[in-house]
Design a protein around this nucleic acid. Sequence first.
DNA 1: ATACCATGTCGTATAATTGCAACATACTTC
DNA 2: GAAGTATGTTGCAATTATACGACATGGTAT
Lengths: 115, 115
Amino acid sequence: MTYAKTTEFTQEQQELARVAKALGHPARVAIIQLLASKQTCISGDIAAELPLSRTTVSQHLQELKALDLIRGEIDGLTVCYCLNTELLRKVHQQFTAFFVESTATSACAPGGTCC
Amino acid sequence: MTYAKTTEFTQEQQELARVAKALGHPARVAIIQLLASKQTCISGDIAAELPLSRTTVSQHLQELKALDLIRGEIDGLTVCYCLNTELLRKVHQQFTAFFVESTATSACAPGGTCC
DNA sequence: ATACCATGTCGTATAATTGCAACATACTTC
DNA sequence: GAAGTATGTTGCAATTATACGACATGGTAT
């Protein structure tokens, strides 16, 4: 984004926002859940299970791949997508840190001195 | 979205995606962090700390308010925004459940039978 | 009442996202 | 090599997000 002043924000804030944005569409959430549960992670099978066209699913897959949340291995004619569980664990920690920080009782919380 | 087929996804998937989308911009991440750390949560003070115009910050605040992640109370001339810590805790649980499910060793994970 | 101040809303412009059909690519099989 | 299959890429249209100036609103203070 050259338009948005995202440069002015913290590296951590941008990092968290980038991943959150990737999870900001039900299709991509569904894809990750599918990859976690299904034995097969072939591209075509993923598209078949989602209420979207193969083209659109492919785009969502590329988006997740761009963030390295998933990886694709070409296996002959088909492509097999896998979760990057290590990165997902790291992301989980980032989110947890964010939420813990946010839910800690601050002055602004109910019962605080502010509101 | 009347265009997207979001209706076909799970309620949970849509719910998670909706919140993730809200966190999908560094400004909104920064706002939540600010509200968690600062004593004052007055609208103007928030805008002053962010590299965005007051108008734009106000929009982001409305977006967070629409999801009930934050709440605003009019205090005379100023408006005081507060974190909805209860909801944030609930959201944290949803995210954790999602990540735990995703990072559990599946057949697709490295060492699995798939890739 | 008048002037002022803090916020929100509206209008507008630009960028990014979403979705899909049509085409291109690359491998398999006959 | 030709036909078929699975994917990715391109091009286009519609929707949504982002950003901000200008105006409206509503309370404060003098």
